[in-house]
Amino acid sequence: MLDQAFVVRSLEEVRFWSRIMKEHSLFLKLGFRCEDTQLINEANHFYVTFEAIENKANAFTTGTDPNVIKRFNEEVHTATSYIWAFKRKVLGLILTCQLPGANNFPLLVDHVSREANYFRNRLAELNTGQLEPLADAIIDENVFFLRIMADHAKFISHLLDPSERQLVEQANNFSQEFDTLLYQARDLESMRPQSQTVPLLDQFLDQNRVSVKSLRDFKKTAKDLIDACRIKSIIHPLLADHVFREAEHFLVIIDMFERSLTDHQKSS
């Protein structure tokens, strides 16, 4: 039986991720060569598609019929599957050297395709009502987002001008820090179910929160400096804001898990 909680959760996910997908379309387009007109047109198509989805999601309210939202989720899932396939196609073209001189890093294209896959999986879980048990969700979500954060640090390092030595060093340090956190998360993952105790999961979330907050603050500083034209880089201002929002989103998820763990402890 679908209820209001399903509507709220669905709209939160679609509003956040449809904007992310829309911006991915723009970033990919900016990285193509002038002659890549077909790829540019496809990227423009996805930009328009996800802008329309974003607007539609914003027009819905928490009082919208859950069955309407379920059908909407199915539409969004289809669109997200198409953009995922587009991103994988672009990655294949890059890795087979068919786009020489283009400016999309292979890791960036893989990164945005992983986010599309994550989004469509979330939509499928919501529509089927088959959400992961709390302990599994905590580990799996952190494994996913820790890798996303590590990637962001690498992109920032490579898109800053090499002369911005201090900021490049800071970004590289964050890259190493989040690679280490990711390895730790994967260790916890391979030790489950024995590793899924409340004390271990609680410490896991606490440690990750500290590092994500620090990276979020670094991204905010970089964003403000880019907006004020105070540093040298080829980072698009929207990309700086984009990676900042994703760190904020990860913190919201960590806080949600912390509350759920506390509630679980009280009820057990």
Rank of each mutant, 00 (worst) to 15 (best):
M21W: 03
E13P: 03
T49E: 04
S190A: 05
D161G: 07
V109E: 01
S195W: 01
A150G: 09
K89E: 01
D65G: 06
A228W: 03
A59E: 13
S25R: 09
R9F: 02
S157R: 15
T128Q: 11
L108Q: 13
C229H: 14
P162L: 02
A247G: 03
M21P: 01
S214W: 02
I20L: 07
R245C: 12
L201K: 05
I235G: 08
Q176D: 05
L205E: 06
E23G: 04
I20R: 13
L201V: 05
E258A: 10
R259Q: 15
W84F: 10
R88W: 09
E51G: 03
S233W: 15
S175Y: 15
T180W: 08
T49F: 03
A171L: 11
Q207L: 07
H77Q: 11
N142I: 03
N173E: 11
Q194H: 14
F204V: 04
E42G: 00
Y118F: 13
S190G: 01
S214V: 04
L146V: 01
P237W: 05
P162G: 00
D110E: 08
F27V: 13
E189N: 06
E74I: 01
L2Y: 13
V14C: 04
F50L: 06
V68E: 08
H264Q: 12
Q176M: 12
V76E: 01
A228K: 08
S268W: 10
A247H: 08
L93I: 00
